[in-house]
């Protein structure tokens, strides 16, 4: 049968940085085709298709549609596969090869992680589950 795609509304203006992304304005309606764990969602709307940051999208079906995982305060061990320098004060700066504990996997691709008792946000794109093959 037909695949029913979830409908989302853009909550901000987003200007694309590559041809594979979409530019949207606040209030634009989009269908989400694929949700990547790194926070980029493949969307279609108004005859266009491309990637959008999940952080700019809210579900039309209402906020009771819970997809977000619960935090895991014990932490799940991940390895940093690409270094990142914090831009905002609630982010962590880490180098390639560092080991961290993932506390909360947020859909927007910015996960809450802990290292040396310090907690902050880090791009999930630069993390890999410890022991996993790339």
């Amino acid at each position: 049968g037909p695949v029913l795609l979830q409908t989302y509304r853009s909550i901000g203006d987003y200007q694309k940085n590559s041809k594979y992304e979409l530019s949207v304005g606040t209030g634009d309606i989009l269908e989400v085709v694929e949700k990547s764990e790194n926070g980029w969602w493949f969307c279609q709307g108004d005859g266009k298709r491309g990637w959008l940051p999940a952080a700019y999208l809210e579900p039309m079906d209402g906020p009771d549609e819970i997809e977000e995982q619960e935090p895991n305060y014990e932490g799940e061990v991940y390895t940093v596969v690409k270094g990142y320098e914090s831009v905002q004060e609630d982010e962590l700066s880490l180098g390639e090869g560092d080991t961290v504990e993932v506390i909360h996997k947020l859909l927007d691709g910015w996960w809450v992680i802990r290292r040396d008792e310090v907690t902050g946000y880090f791009p999930s794109m630069y993390l890999q589950k410890a022991g996993a093959k790339p």
């Binding site: 790194n38 980029w40 952080a55 809210e58 905002q88 791009p123």
Partner: peptide
């Protein structure tokens, strides 16, 4: 391929949503 997500981390949530999360 177009079906590969961008190589850079997506931007953080716009300010309005960050307030809602807090």
């Amino acid at each position: 391929s177009i079906h590969q997500p961008p190589m850079n981390p997506p931007p953080r949530p716009p300010a309005e949503q960050r307030r809602k999360q807090a």
